[in-house]
Design a protein around this nucleic acid. Structure first.
Lengths: 188, 188
DNA sequence: CACTTGAAGCAGCATATTTGCTTTAAGGTG
DNA sequence: CACCTTAAAGCAAATATGCTGCTTCAAGTG
């Protein structure tokens, strides 16, 4: 479990966590990810470095926490009228966000400082939630729908794999092909 | 391009590289991955720390290099008599190696110290090579075969995604289901 | 057999990390 | 509401790590 879940919800710890996270974001924007150091973040957050070392262990775990926050989807997937078009739209947006350099960096950060896999699991859970919404909507329209795991295997996994391991030739057409391969191109 | 490719092939540099890599492996086994530091590796390798910093930049890039080496397949995939069984056997072994804690660690290391994606690309290339062998063999038997990209999407990507993002419920049955979903269960 | 040149060694400086101890304040208790 | 208890934060000193300029070595070249 990520250490941030251990903080006492209302008090000083929460303030410290918020200001540290904010400091990471500001400094990422200002000086770039490469130049981040624990002492630098601590100074900006108005906190001593040892606080960060004790709560997060090291810079990677902290960045991992922040990265997961940034990967949280901001809105429910748009309703385009059919399963196929909903999935296509969602997947295209997903690809766009994740394959951009900053998106890739967040994914890597999330994976990196995450010995037990909690943060990575959270990323996957976010995607599953979004897909779940899309599938529910499709079921409401009496379309027949694959289950979430299948969508993860057939659409999300290939995108992620290619983002991480072979970033060439990754575009909207590829994504559409994945979706069509799964749900067919008949309806719409 | 990984820096190791820049060394002069026959001489001192090559010896240094070999002894540094060996040191990483020994120490990984002895003290564990967490406890590795550049000075420690340097001491074991009989080299000064600055040599490592100059050649690899930092510990992550070094670990990434070593990890890719370890992820190189050791043998051609076994011939089990049919496309389906070849793929199943290969994929099961792949899963076994990659989903073990040490396998996951290598994958993460390979992804990590790899700003430009070369090492990650290499991992994917290894898998593609192995699959290519299997597909050629199947084509020789007059089976009809999907192309490599499709196998990557339908078999490798889902395994990798789950290894990295949702390690629960990952077993041989899951892998077989992926393979059957791709090539069918008719033959054999 | 020089010569060139990329890589390694060395040493010292600057930063980052760790750690023991002290202090603060959140949340619970009588 | 005053008083405990206890995580977590602050502080400061000790250590370890990482970086850099300069020197030395030896592989490849003519």
């Amino acid at each position: 479990m990520s250490r941030k879940t251990m903080v006492r919800p209302g008090g000083r710890s929460a303030r410290v966590q918020a200001s540290v996270h904010a400091a990471v974001r500001e400094l990422e924007a200002e000086v770039g990810r490469e130049a981040l150091t624990v002492p630098l973040v601590a100074a900006r957050a108005g906190v001593t470095p040892s606080t960060i070392y004790r709560r997060w262990g090291d810079l990677q775990e902290l960045l991992s926490d922040v990265a997961v926050e940034r990967l949280r989807p901001e809105a429910a997937p748009e309703d385009k009228g059919s399963l196929r078009s909903d999935l296509e739209a969602w997947a295209e947006q997903f690809l766009e966000e994740m394959s951009a350099p900053t998106g890739r960096a967040y994914i890597r950060d999330a994976l990196l400082g995450d010995p037990n896999g909690t943060n990575a699991g959270q990323c996957s859970a976010y995607a599953a939630e979004q897909i779940d919404v899309i599938l529910d909507r499709a079921a409401g329209r009496e379309e027949n729908t694959p289950d979430v795991e299948t969508v993860l295997d057939r659409v999300v996994a290939p995108m992620m794999y290619r983002i991480l391991f072979r970033p060439e030739g990754l575009d909207a057409a590829y994504v559409r092909q994945l979706v069509v391969g799964l749900v067919g191109s008949n309806d719409r």
